[in-house]
């Protein structure tokens, strides 16, 4: 399976293995949603007319229902212990494989592929478009690797992505702040207050052991010498931003993967070569 999360980073840090967790199974079904066994399997029957109407009438008549999933909230809302995801109404048209794909003005397209020059042209407030529609014109068939994301999230991705890219570059000036200390115990490093160590690889990250924090806030670490180059130094603020960026990136990639699998499984679009 393609790793869209890494593609968003435009880098490949290799696989990170996650512990497989037990899945959920359906206990009770209402309104004819007869899912049986594991999630995703089963037969739907006796769907209540109100429910059918509610979902079938969502969006314009010519909206491809599969496209709805591409524009969902990538971060679920947690309000007082209730988890919600809103799938926004999208005024989207799909005329043919080469053509325009539209989003409401509060959304932006985010490209999560690894092509440095994707054949997508963003058109805003075009002559033929209503002013509140953002369109992407594709000359290369159905625009895969593109997902609609709320503008605030898209802007954050751009800004935070640049912060992370700068942090991981060889020219990161903060890296010089990590100093090797001459102690009896080998591989001891100090980092001034206000800075943190960051490593993209979670397994390696855990091998940096915080020995103690000095009175002036200096952090003293024990880090295996062979792994020292895997770490970069970032400000505490950038550390927080990078953490949030990683979470958002993974969630967007997950939503896109789900959307793309659904689209291809349903055969609603022919697969176009890129």
């Amino acid at each position: 399976m393609r790793n869209y999360s890494d593609a968003l980073d435009n880098r490949n840090y290799g696989d990170t293995t996650k512990t497989k967790k037990k899945g959920s199974k359906v206990v009770k079904i209402f309104l004819g949603m007869a899912l049986v066994g594991a999630i995703g399997l089963g037969v739907w029957s006796l769907f209540d007319d109100d429910i059918v109407g509610f979902f079938k009438n969502f969006g314009k008549d010519d909206v491809n229902p599969d496209d709805l999933l591409a524009f969902s909230e990538s971060i679920p809302l947690d309000k007082d212990g209730v988890i919600s995801i809103t799938y926004p109404f999208v005024d989207r048209t799909l005329e043919n494989a080469n053509g325009r794909y539209s989003l409401p003005d509060s959304y932006d397209f985010v490209y999560i592929g690894d092509d440095e020059n994707p054949t997508l042209k963003v058109i805003k407030n075009g002559e033929l478009e209503p002013s509140n529609i953002v369109s992407v014109e594709s000359n290369n068939g159905y625009p895969v690797d593109v997902i609609g994301v709320k503008t605030d999230y898209a802007n954050f991705l751009n800004d935070a992505g640049e912060i992370k890219s700068n942090a991981l570059s060889e020219n990161n000036p903060n890296n010089s702040k990590l100093a090797l200390e001459n102690y009896e115990v080998p591989n001891v490093y100090s980092l001034p207050a206000g800075f943190k160590l960051y490593c993209e690889n979670e397994a390696i990250n855990k091998q940096a052991l915080l020995a103690y924090i000095a009175e002036d806030g200096t952090n003293v670490y024990v880090i295996p010498k062979a792994l020292i180059d895997e770490f970069v130094v970032v400000t505490e603020n950038d550390f927080t931003i990078i953490g949030k960026y990683n979470v958002l990136k993974d969630q967007i990639a997950e939503v896109y993967d789900l959307y793309e699998s659904n689209r291809l499984n349903n055969g609603t679009q022919t697969t176009n070569s890129r």
Binding site: V52, P65, P76
Partner: peptide, 30 residues
């Protein structure tokens, strides 16, 4: 029962997405 645990939040979000996918599939076929 309101959700407070991070793992429960993750499960809840995945279940919502799953239901939406299944509803979407069903709506297309009928």
């Amino acid at each position: 029962i309101k959700i407070q645990d991070a793992r429960d939040k993750e499960i809840a979000a995945n279940l919502i997405r799953t239901v939406m996918v299944e509803i979407n599939k069903y709506s297309k076929k009928n």
